[in-house]
Simulated scan of single mutants.
Amino acid sequence: MEIVNFFEKLAGRWFSQRTTHALSTQQSKAGKSDLEVSFLASDSAEVQTLCESLSESDQSSGAPLCGLQIQQSSTIEGDTKPSISTTLMVPFAPDSSASGHGKLVSSGGPSQRVQQSTYLLEDEVLTIVTEDDQAQSTERVWFINDNLRMRTGMMELTDGLRIASFCSEIRLGVKPPKAD
């Protein structure tokens, strides 16, 4: 499976159940999210605008392959007000010398900034690694079937706090079969 096909499969409306666990404090929290994920062609205005905002050195990754726009409304155990965000993710072609690793650029989300990550799509599991001066995170996404996907995450902050998460996500409305 290619990254573009994987991103197409991610599109749709999803309900997400999440458990987050701080390993050092042994505290866990549950949460839930409603996700609206839209697949964007590589020449869409949103993808092109994000690519134009990158510095020249960041643009050396080549042309974008596609994009995902994710609108998320989340609540976490103990919070009464939902958190609402929109994230745009754009993958670039894998580097042939890096064994299928590619670059992924995202903007928006809780941090409201442009972040660069690397991705690896192997055995139909997408792994995204993001590192900056505040944290390192690894997220893995895979499908059990077309309407059920799993997501795990591990984040380590520079102060040593480690947070693990697990999400099970159910597509709202069955994905129509592909035409022959």
Rank of each mutant, 00 (worst) to 15 (best):
A93Q: 13
S137A: 05
G173Q: 15
D34S: 12
T49A: 15
R162I: 12
A164D: 00
K9L: 03
Q17P: 00
V47S: 05
S168A: 09
I144G: 02
L161Q: 12
V4D: 01
F166S: 10
A45T: 11
E8W: 06
M1E: 05
S74T: 14
K9N: 09
L35T: 06
Y119E: 02
L121A: 02
L148Y: 10
F39K: 11
Q17L: 09
S16Q: 11
L50N: 09
T75G: 02
R171G: 07
T75A: 08
T86G: 00
Q116V: 02
S106K: 08
S99V: 01
I70N: 02
V90G: 00
E77G: 01
L161R: 12
A93Y: 02
F92R: 08
E2I: 13
G12Q: 11
A30P: 00
L50V: 13
I70S: 00
V174E: 14
S74R: 10
G78V: 08
M154T: 12
M1G: 05
K32H: 12
S83W: 09
T118N: 03
C167M: 13
A164G: 01
V141Q: 01
L161D: 01
A98R: 13
T49K: 14
S107F: 05
Q59T: 10
H21Y: 12
L172R: 15
S85K: 08
D180P: 04
S83L: 14
I163N: 04
L126Q: 09
K9E: 07
Q17D: 05
M155V: 05
A164I: 03
V125E: 12
E52F: 03
E46V: 10
M89F: 04
R151H: 15
G173V: 13
S61A: 11
S53W: 11
S57H: 08
K81N: 09
T158M: 08
A45H: 12
S168V: 14
Q112I: 03
S60E: 14
K81C: 06
G102S: 10
L68E: 06
Q17A: 06
S107R: 07
G12K: 11
A30T: 15
G78Q: 12
D146N: 04
L10E: 15
A30L: 14
S73E: 13
R113H: 11
T87V: 08
V37N: 00
F6E: 03
R18F: 02
C167K: 13
E131D: 11
M1C: 07
K178S: 09
Q26S: 06
S33Q: 03
S60N: 07
I76L: 05
L157C: 00
K175T: 10
R18D: 05
V174D: 11
L10G: 06
Q17S: 11
Q26N: 06
L148F: 08
M155Q: 08
P177T: 15
R151D: 07
E46F: 07
S97H: 10
S57W: 05
S106L: 04
S165E: 14
S24R: 06
E2H: 12
D132F: 02
G31D: 06
A41T: 14
Q72I: 09
V174W: 05
G102R: 07
S28P: 00
V114E: 08
N145Y: 01
G160N: 03
D146K: 01
L120I: 05
F15I: 14
N147Q: 10
